[in-house]
Amino acid sequence: MGLGTLLFGWPLMPIYAVVKLGELMRDQVERELHDPAVVRRRLEEVEQARADGRISAEEEDRAVEEILRGMVGW
């Protein structure tokens, strides 16, 4: 890091930090969307909600479709 970068770049450091934080959050969300264990758990939760009568068959279908779309990135 040169002196010019140090002198003129430090005011932008908070912006760089926010951008980096956003990238880390995006990466974490993508990992969770594509992690088979997380997808399986979400599908099991939907199945249990249907078995308990908390959601209808149509709502179950929509939830499963949404989960699978998130998994493959549609």
Score class of each variant (00 low, 15 high):
71 M>K: 14
32 E>N: 12
20 K>Y: 01
15 I>H: 03
37 A>I: 00
39 V>Q: 02
20 K>C: 04
28 Q>L: 14
36 P>C: 07
29 V>K: 07
18 V>N: 06
32 E>S: 07
68 L>Y: 01
61 D>M: 10
15 I>C: 10
40 R>V: 00
67 I>D: 02
51 A>L: 13
25 M>K: 09
4 G>K: 12
58 E>F: 06
12 L>P: 00
28 Q>I: 01
68 L>W: 06
34 H>G: 07
1 M>V: 11
1 M>R: 08
4 G>W: 07
3 L>E: 12
51 A>G: 01
59 E>V: 03
68 L>K: 13
55 I>T: 03
30 E>D: 11
23 E>W: 00
67 I>A: 03
12 L>N: 14
5 T>F: 05
9 G>V: 05
58 E>H: 03
10 W>T: 15
74 W>R: 14
42 R>H: 11
23 E>A: 04
12 L>I: 11
9 G>T: 04
27 D>Y: 01
52 D>H: 03
56 S>N: 04
49 A>R: 12
58 E>S: 09
66 E>P: 00
11 P>Q: 06
21 L>T: 00
34 H>T: 08
62 R>N: 08
31 R>M: 04
23 E>K: 04
62 R>W: 07
39 V>S: 06
59 E>R: 10
63 A>V: 08
11 P>M: 11
51 A>Q: 09
4 G>E: 15
48 Q>Y: 07
29 V>Y: 05
65 E>T: 14
13 M>V: 13
74 W>V: 15
67 I>T: 11
2 G>T: 15
45 E>M: 13
67 I>Q: 04
64 V>M: 12
14 P>Q: 07
64 V>H: 04
32 E>F: 04
44 E>W: 02
16 Y>P: 00
33 L>I: 01
